[in-house]
C-alpha cells in the first residue's frame, strides 16, 4: 500500500458517501444518472465476485472495503430507482448503457491476461468502470448544469482513478509491478474527466456553479 492508493481509495469512499448524503439529505436524485450508478454496481459485483464464491473472514480491511463498495452502490441504486424514483430524471438519463456494456464485455473476451471466468469478469469490470461515468456526464450536458454537491461527487470520483495512476507509477518504479489492462483503462477513465476537472477547478472552487455550455 502506498500513499497514492490510500488517498485514491479514500477519495472513492468520499465520492460514494457524498452521493449517498446528497440523495438522502435532499431526498432527491435530480441531476444523478441512475445508469452510471447501476454500471458502478455491476463493476463492483463482477470485480469482487470472489467474495461470494468462497466465504471470506472479514479480517482484513480490503474485504471490508469491497463489501462497503458493493452494499453502498446497491443501496444508492435502490434510492434512485425505488425510494426516490419520483425525482429520478429518466428523460435526461438517456445514454444507452448497452452501448457501454456490450463493447466492454466483448473487449474483455478479446483482451485479457487469462481466459478464465473470474479473470474475464475482472477485465470486464475494469473496462466498464472506465466508461461508467459517461451517462452521468451525458446527463449533465443535457440538463446544462450540475448541482455543486454533484460536482464534488464527480471530482472525488474522478480523482480516485487519477490517484491510482500515480499509484501505478509508484509501483512500477519501486515494485516493478505492472497491470497493463488496469493502467490503460484507468488512463482512459481519467481522460474522460479532464473537461469536468477544468470546469470544476475554474468554477466550483470559486463558488460558482457549473453551467454548460461553459
Amino acid at each position: 500500500m502506498n500513499i497514492f492508493r490510500l488517498f485514491g481509495d479514500l477519495s472513492h469512499l468520499a465520492a460514494i458517501a457524498i452521493l449517498l448524503l446528497k440523495i438522502w439529505k435532499t431526498r432527491s436524485c435530480a441531476g444523478v444518472s441512475g445508469k452510471t450508478q447501476l454500471l458502478f454496481a455491476v463493476c463492483f459485483i463482477t470485480r469482487y465476485i470472489d467474495l461470494f464464491l468462497h466465504f471470506v473472514s472479514l479480517y482484513n480491511t480490503e474485504k471490508v472495503m469491497k463489501l462497503i463498495y458493493i452494499s453502498a452502490s446497491v443501496f444508492t441504486c435502490y434510492l434512485i430507482f425505488f425510494k426516490f424514483k419520483a425525482t429520478y430524471d429518466g428523460n435526461h438519463d438517456s445514454m444507452r448503457a448497452e452501448f457501454l456494456i456490450v463493447p466492454a464485455a466483448g473487449l474483455a473476451c478479446l483482451i485479457n491476461t487469462k481466459f478464465d471466468a473470474i479473470e474475464i469478469l475482472w477485465t470486464f469490470s475494469i473496462y466498464l468502470e472506465a466508461v461508467a461515468i459517461l451517462p452521468q456526464l451525458f446527463l449533465i450536458s443535457k440538463t446544462g448544469e450540475a448541482e455543486t454537491i454533484t460536482s464534488h461527487y464527480l471530482f472525488a470520483q474522478g480523482s480516485y482513478r487519477a490517484l491510482y495512476i500515480l499509484n501505478w507509477i509508484y509501483r512500477y518504479h519501486y515494485e516493478s509491478h505492472v497491470d497493463t489492462i488496469a493502467i490503460v483503462a484507468g488512463v482512459v477513465q481519467t481522460i474522460l474527466y479532464c473537461d469536468f476537472f477544468y470546469l470544476y477547478i475554474t468554477k466550483v472552487v470559486k463558488g460558482q456553479k457549473i453551467v454548460l455550455p461553459a
Binding site: 463498495y69 475482472w122 499509484n167 497491470d179
Partner: peptide, 10 residues
C-alpha cells in the same frame, strides 16, 4: 516488470 498474477488492488 512482471505482470501481476493476482489483482491486489480494489
Amino acid at each position: 516488470p512482471h505482470a501481476s498474477k493476482k489483482h491486489d488492488e480494489l
